[in-house]
Design a protein around this nucleic acid. Structure first.
Length: 548
DNA sequence: GCCGTTTTCGGCCCGACTGTTTTCAGTCG
């Protein structure tokens, strides 16, 4: 083991001790040992105990730890600390610019225990409220976290969408509008992806290579990274076989196998369009988003596939935050921006009073906000702001606020934010109680998962959906690309039970409303139709729905 | 935990930099 590697163990131990806020001078000592060991030029492995102890700052205890590391590869003290530190906190320690003091503060004050949670907290402007943090620090940390996640090989779909579409434009420009499209996981709009995949006419290979950093090239593909270091594969094929190749590279493998098994003919090589592939198989065209579930193949054969929802079906934006709680923009800014983005209405749902960490609204602030909404509605008509609240589901399943307050809202999104470590039975009962509350309009992000960061609540989804059906409660598909919760796999069951889905951005800023697009992507994977989505209703119909 | 002695505990490397503050705290190397 090299001196540097041995030294690193002491550094890690020092950081862990500091993060736990234990004996700060012990942490200092180990940090000093780290500094001194790095300076040593002779291999530590070859030094005797006596020689080691002669190093300034290295005492008896550290000598025995060095010997322990050389012998076993680690040391007991370090393992002890690792055992009491969540893996996510250990990840944070490895991120440059984030030191033990800040990590300790985030852990203690915001209960952040992973990179994903911290990233989400940045998105919701939670950090700037902490002592010693400001918006520059928050933005800096956010950038570093994204980099960390990128280096980890898995990404949210949203991370690369712009990059992929931009690159396609560049390639088209460089090739006089040549043949190039999205394929693979991104074309299927998977919520988590590993890379950008494109399919292009093979005669364009040379031009494409000038636009990306190519690490490997064969006759059928170019792999490498985009200029922004995003992993990419560009599949290549002759233009006349584009359809067959697109079908194949879109995948996934399971679907392709099931497709061949169900097809009238089994050979699909050399076809120019995907439509030709489906025609030859005598199977109705299946949208790429649906191909992660081969159950749709049967429906395609019977020609009973759903007409999938599209972005332009969305008429209003529900579940949004303003500066009243933890949003970045004022009520007016949110409303005008939503109106100018082409929507008919905005549902404002700031946090309820129990969400103290998010500046949840005390009753007097609720009333103040309602007054402002009335004013704005006069001014902005026919655009309309609806008075909502994201009411915390408390530990026992009841909603935040007294009944007379709950009765004043136009609609209520009920969400769990705290105490996520329950078993499935308890968690399900807690949510069902909230669903049965007559004031609940929408069940917000049911599992509270954070993709790539937090698993979320274990739920009996069928029971939850059944309860929503029985109580006329809408289920949210939280469109934040980190959540996409309820998971799209449950949409077919919800539709079967007649439970509508609300595609909500959970926006904490004006820009945030555009997240609704990622919700639509996920909803399409579940086969959602426009008529089973709540916020495809026109303003008039939405008002009628609330009145009912 | 280590050092350095006013030999038995008290005090702990440091300059640059950044971002918060308004004279300082955290991080890096």
């Amino acid at each position: 083991m090299t001196n540097k590697e041995i030294a690193q163990k002491f550094k890690f131990l020092a950081d862990l001790i500091d993060v736990h806020g234990k004996d700060k001078y012990r942490g200092k000592t180990y940090n000093n040992v780290y500094i001194q060991l790095r300076k040593q030029t002779t291999p530590l492995e070859s030094l005797s105990e006596k020689e080691l102890e002669e190093i300034k700052g290295v005492g008896k205890s550290s000598v025995s730890k060095i010997k322990e590391i050389v012998g076993t590869g680690t040391m007991k003290k370090l393992e002890e600390y690792l055992a009491i530190t969540p893996p996510g906190i250990q990840d944070l320690i490895s991120i440059k610019g984030l030191g033990p003091k800040k990590i300790a503060q985030l852990w203690k004050e915001l209960e952040i225990e992973s990179v994903g949670e911290l990233l989400y907290a940045c998105n919701e402007n939670r950090l700037i409220a902490l002592n010693g943090f400001g918006d520059k620090t928050q933005a800096d940390i956010q950038g570093k976290l994204l980099y960390f996640l990128q280096s980890r090989d898995k990404f949210h779909y949203a991370t690369f969408e712009q990059e992929a579409l931009g690159l396609i434009e560049e390639i088209k420009k460089a090739t006089n509008n040549g043949l190039v499209v999205l394929t693979g996981e991104m074309r299927r709009k998977l919520t988590i992806i590993k890379q950008i995949e494109l399919l292009a006419d093979q005669t364009m290979a040379d031009q494409i290579k000038t636009l990306i950093n190519c690490t490997e090239q064969t006759d059928t593909k170019i792999t490498g990274k985009t200029k922004n270091e995003v992993p990419i594969t560009v599949h290549l094929c002759p233009a006349e076989a584009f359809g067959s190749k697109l079908f194949k590279t879109t995948g996934p493998r399971d679907f392709l196998e099931a497709f061949v098994a169900a097809a009238a003919e089994k050979e699909f090589k050399g076809l120019p369009t995907e439509q030709a592939v489906f025609e030859k198989a005598s199977i109705h065209y299946i949208d790429p988003e649906l191909r992660d579930d081969d159950a749709w193949i049967e429906q395609a054969k019977k020609q009973t596939l759903p007409q999938l929802i599209v972005d332009s079906d969305i008429k209003g934006i529900l579940h949004n935050h303003s500066t009243y709680s933890d949003g970045l923009h004022t009520l007016r800014e949110m409303a005008e921006y939503t109106r100018d983005s082409g929507y008919e209405y905005l549902g404002i749902t700031d946090h309820s009073k129990a969400a103290f960490y998010a500046n949840g609204l005390k009753p007097d602030r609720v009333l103040q906000q309602m007054e402002e909404i009335d004013q704005l509605n006069k001014e902005l008509a026919p655009f309309k702001i609806f008075k909502g609240i994201e009411s915390d589901i408390l530990n026992d399943g009841s909603l935040d606020y007294e009944e007379d307050m709950l009765a004043r809202f136009d609609f209520i999104v009920a969400s769990v934010h705290t105490n996520l470590k329950m078993d499935e039975e308890k968690a399900t009962q807690r949510l069902i109680k909230a669903i049965e509350n007559p004031y609940t309009t929408i069940l917000g992000h049911p599992t509270s998962r954070l993709l790539l960061a937090r698993k979320g609540y274990p739920l009996d989804h069928k029971q939850i959906i059944d309860a929503c059906a029985a109580n006329n409660v809408i289920i949210e598909l939280n469109a934040n690309p980190h959540r996409l919760d309820i998971d799209w796999v449950w949409i077919p069951y919800a539709m079967e039970r007649g439970v509508k889905i609300a595609i909500n951005p959970d926006a904490h800023s004006m820009d945030g409303i555009h997240h609704v697009h990622f919700g639509v992507c996920a909803a399409r994977k579940g086969g959602l139709t426009a008529d089973m989505c709540l916020n495809t209703l026109s303003l008039k119909d939405f008002e009628a729905f609330l009145a009912k």
